[in-house]
């Protein structure tokens, strides 16, 4: 059987959706409550890492492909840079030129919300990629390791 035991698999299938929702909440409300793009991105990445730990690489990659993660990784950073460029309209790089909206509402504080979303994509996909790079080596059985060394 690939991955961990049935109990771990069932429970992690159950919590993954909630972890992602919680991460999205941390990202979207980053300008109002503690949190933000980085923290939320780490939480979202941890959901995919949990999938990889419980089910193995293949299942995790079927949810978020390596190529898609690479594209999201660059796109998040580019989106953040573009938000910075948008400020040039106001005369300064990263100037907050978007509408500020009503205080304490979800759609407020101008560029902070889109910047948080961009950072979340970048952080979530990069951390997932870092973890998948660490998991690139497959485990050999102890016996074959010993035999390999004896040879």
């Amino acid at each position: 059987m690939k991955g961990l035991s049935l109990i771990v698999k069932t429970i992690s299938d159950f919590v993954v959706a909630f972890i992602i929702i919680f991460g999205a909440y941390i990202v979207l409300y980053g300008h109002l409550t503690p949190g933000g793009g980085f923290a939320g991105g780490v939480i979202i990445a941890s959901a995919f890492i949990l999938l990889m730990l419980a089910h193995g690489r293949e299942v995790a990659f079927s949810k978020l492909g390596e190529r898609a993660a690479h594209i999201l990784d660059s796109a998040g950073a580019l989106a953040f840079l573009l938000i910075g460029w948008a400020g040039v309209v106001g005369g300064y790089f990263f100037m907050n030129v978007f509408g500020r909206g009503e205080q304490f509402r979800l759609l407020s504080s101008g560029m902070i919300l889109p910047a948080n979303i961009a950072i979340a994509f970048k952080v979530a996909s990069s951390l997932f990629l870092v973890f998948s790079a660490l998991a690139i080596f497959r485990r050999r059985s102890f016996r074959s390791m010993i035999e390999g060394e004896l040879r």
Binding site: I71, S74, A77, L78, L81, G84, W85, V88, G91, F93
Partner: peptide, 21 residues
Amino acid sequence: MSPVPLFVAIPLGAAFLIPML
């Protein structure tokens, strides 16, 4: 606007566009 931020923004943009494209 002064061109100073472009010295960072241009290579940074290129660095993220290259792996995507």
